[in-house]
Amino acid sequence: MGLVSRYVVPFLNEHYIEAMLSLLVVIFINFIVPKNNKKKGEEAMQNGSVPGHKSSSTKEERASKNVIKSGGVGDVADDDEDEGLDNLVDPLWPEDLKHVPFRPPRYTQEESLQRSRDYFELLNKRRSVRFFSSEPVPREVIDNIVRTGGTSPSGAHTEPWTFVVVGDIDMKHEVRRIVEAEEEVNYTKRMGSQWVNDLKALKTNWVKEYLTEAPWLILIFKQTYGILPDGRKRNHYYHEISTALAGGIMLSAIHYAGLVTLTSTPLNCGPQLRTLLGRPSNEKLLLLLPVGYPSLDATVPDLQRKDLEDIMVVF
């Protein structure tokens, strides 16, 4: 006891204990934690994850793995997209791909100004129309409209789109049945009161007569990945943006042909319509465009577009 009292007890005062605890904290922070983090980082790199970052959802983890696996950049997978993409090492295009001279028409400044003004005035008359005539439209006109949509740019020129054209009356009735059933639920339960109230003045609801009145329906599907002849899957870069651009170009072609359309986006109808039309699982419905002439009593809301200064910023 004498030895304990002489050598140990003096070190058990609170100041000494506090100092020792502080020293242990410093050692832990500066030596033990960095070593453990380094080990975790090495393990994370081997597993293809990023150390220190927790995935906020299974969807994000899946999308990240898919993009890395397919070698793609830019696209984030939808809930059921891009599953099981093959890790292709062969390039999409050969290295010796031929490049050819490009000589588009060259106009004077005055001509460019006039053409830009004329095109704006033409497209400024475009309106979304919900009242269609059953007057037939030649199939050749629709063919050219679809060809025009196919001139859109796409990521790595993968052309990730399919345009399904429906003119058969029975098939149009089936499309309408599916769309109206889902849209009724959308308007009454899913969309919420603010969204529904915002649409009231536009005179739109879940009843879609134009789906059977218009002579043609064009359903625009995005191909979330490509399927090679040997069955392997190839990533389609920016498939949604590319297909949306194709839809925009198609809108201008429809208007230029003297026809009208409506950018219909039937919520929750994609899988059923894909099945009805026999489309493969890599295709997802993006837009549905009824195409034809407006009915004689067609009306549109008296809306104005934003002024240039409200949509353009110049530096």
Score class of each variant (00 low, 15 high):
Thr265Glu: 00
Leu217Ile: 04
Asp78Tyr: 12
Ile241Ser: 04
Arg117Pro: 00
Pro136Trp: 05
Tyr187Leu: 10
Asn87Ala: 10
Ala257Phe: 11
Tyr187Met: 14
Tyr225Ala: 06
Arg234Pro: 03
Ala246Arg: 07
Asp198Ile: 08
Trp195Met: 09
Pro101Leu: 03
Tyr238Ile: 05
Ser70Leu: 04
Val9Asp: 03
Glu182Cys: 05
Pro136Thr: 11
Ala44Ile: 01
Lys233Gln: 10
Lys59Ala: 15
Gly292Asp: 05
Glu184Asn: 11
Gly278Ser: 01
His99Ile: 01
Pro229Ile: 02
Gly149Lys: 04
Ile241Arg: 08
Asn47Asp: 12
Ser22Cys: 10
Lys35Phe: 15
Pro280Ile: 08
Leu288Ala: 01
Asn205Asp: 14
Gly247Leu: 02
Gly292Phe: 00
Ile311Met: 15
Gly167Glu: 12
Thr212Arg: 02
Ala44Thr: 01
Pro105Asp: 08
Leu113Cys: 10
Lys54Thr: 14
Ala44Asp: 15
Asp302Cys: 02
Lys203Gly: 03
Ala44Gly: 07
Val129Cys: 09
Gly48His: 12
Ile17Ser: 06
Ile218Val: 15
His239Ile: 05
Asp78Ile: 07
Ile32Ser: 14
Arg117Ile: 10
Glu140Ser: 14
Cys269Gln: 03
Asn13Glu: 13
Val25Pro: 03
Met1Tyr: 14
Pro104Lys: 04
His157Ile: 02
Ser242Asp: 06
Arg139Cys: 10
Glu110Ala: 09
Ala201Asn: 09
Lys54Leu: 12
Arg130Met: 01
Lys35His: 12
Ser128Lys: 02
Ile27Trp: 06
Pro290Asp: 00
Glu180Ser: 08
His173Ile: 04
Asp78Asn: 05
Asn205Leu: 07
Thr265Asp: 00
Val137Phe: 02
Pro51Gln: 14
Pro215Ala: 03
Ile68Tyr: 03
Thr158Gly: 08
Gly150Glu: 14
Phe132Ala: 01
Val33Pro: 04
Val166Trp: 05
Pro271Asn: 14
Asp86Val: 13
Asp168Gln: 13
Leu285Trp: 09
Ser56Met: 12
Tyr16Phe: 10
Ile169Phe: 04
Ile17Glu: 09
Val165Pro: 04
Pro136Arg: 06
Asn124Tyr: 09
Ala246Gln: 10
Ile178Pro: 02
Thr158Trp: 00
Val141Thr: 14
His255Val: 06
Gly258Asn: 09
His255Ile: 12
Lys208Cys: 03
Thr212Ile: 15
Val207Asn: 06
Lys233Arg: 14
Leu113Ile: 13
Thr108Ser: 15
Gly150Arg: 09
Asp90Arg: 05
Asp302Tyr: 05
Val26Thr: 11
Val164Arg: 00
Pro290Lys: 00
Thr58Gln: 07
His236Met: 12
Val207Thr: 13
Leu3Arg: 12
Gln304Arg: 13
Lys38Tyr: 08
Thr263Lys: 00
Ala77Asn: 09
Pro136Ala: 13
Asp96Ser: 10
Ile178Gln: 03
Lys233Ala: 05
